[in-house]
Design a protein around this nucleic acid. Structure first.
Lengths: 212, 212
DNA sequence: CGTGATTGGATAGTACTGCTCTCCATTATT
DNA sequence: AATAATGGAGAGCAGTACTATCCAATCACG
């Protein structure tokens, strides 16, 4: 399969495939000469993955590149591979402040995790994301109280257990499963949450028709 | 309070405040003459909200404008206000296809909602988002099976109940609470999920040290 | 009352991103 | 030998979130 066939298979212009090649999102084909290479099913699969990461998961090219790199070279260490991958997922930076003033860098996140009985590793990017999200919500006038944090944490821990129960035994597959699961299931989760809110709202309005 | 004081209060350049004014993200101040206006605490609050929406929540200016508009003119109808607001949240469109071929536009989403016993309203944007997210995950080689959908749905329904239990009685406050909660709690939710995954992974690796 | 600073308002410019287009020498196909 | 396609690289383009410049009107101050 050459590049035009690959592009047709994945349903995108050849120029875009070339762009992904240049950006390191798609591994090179096997060259058959100085100006020709053949691609196989792994390239088709990768293109679908890249489309999902850039489209539905809403990642930037840079972020997707990190994810793809982790999947290509997982390194047998699920914990650090997951750490690297999660660090690349949005919301990305957004937390430059409050880190260097000597004090606790992530006070809210730390308190939350401790009250949930979860590990607290300040190097894990999601800790900074949590801190930033809590600070933003508070700044916008909608602080997240302890009870809500507790509720959210418990339900998400249950879901995490469910996800981890399905972890493949093979370490390389485990990394890919976890990384892709983190990135690709998030949109599903958010959509389901919005729908659950809608459903709950409808039920309440039916129960109290004076508000509908 | 004039514009420079407002900008200082909110911690951003005057040019940015002017930009938000132009983009309809910030309501105008009360003019005291042809070239002067005064701003109050509501403007400071709004700027914090806008920063949270554009920053932590990751919205575009366009999306934030819709949210702000819903909050300013909620219209007493929580269901439709929520619908308008959620329609503006990312991931935004991404689902132009499969809608006009006469068949069911969102088969996966519909099946999921019916098996969860939730309302199915194809006009609700989150339905399209769910369909798109499920299709993307499947295209990337990580299909979401019924059991996972069921689990996710149940836990998120429980969280939605929790959120709705805290709904303010006043309709205008209810809309603002719901809309902001949808937008601003999502980053919290995602961060907590990633942390729960990390925590669960650590526990499993400790239990099976041959994989760490 | 006059002079310099500030304001609201508009226009243009910037930096970045995700493609998309064009070009080219080399190679495959006929 | 003629035509077409390829890999590779550079430039171009449209959109986004600001940012900077300019302007006449107005304010603050002596």
């Amino acid at each position: 399969m050459r590049i035009s066939a690959l592009a047709a298979e994945a349903g995108m212009p050849v120029a875009t495939v070339k762009f992904y090649l240049r950006e390191g999102l798609l591994h090179a084909g096997t060259p058959t000469s100085a100006t020709q290479a053949v691609y196989d099913a792994s390239h088709v699969r990768r293109l679908h993955l890249v489309r999902a990461l850039l489209g539905s998961a809403g990642l930037s090219v840079q972020q997707a590149r990190t994810i793809v790199a982790v999947i290509e070279a997982p390194g047998d260490d699920l914990y650090h591979a997951l750490g690297r991958a999660v660090g690349a997922l949005p919301p990305t930076p957004a937390v430059p402040a409050a880190a260097a003033d000597g004090g606790e860098p992530f006070p809210r996140a730390r308190a939350a995790l401790e009250s949930l009985g979860q590990v607290y590793d300040p190097d894990f990017a999601a800790v900074a994301q949590l801190e930033s999200a809590l600070a933003s919500a508070e700044a916008a006038g909608l602080p997240v109280d302890d009870e809500r944090l507790e509720q959210y944490g418990r339900h998400l821990a249950a879901l995490a257990e469910f996800d981890l129960d399905r972890l493949p035994a093979d370490p390389a597959s485990a990394v890919e499963y976890t990384v892709l699961g983190t990135a690709l299931h998030e949109p599903v989760l958010l959509a389901l949450r919005r729908l659950a809110h809608q459903d709950a709202a409808v039920r309440r309005l039916q129960a109290r028709p004076e508000n509908g």
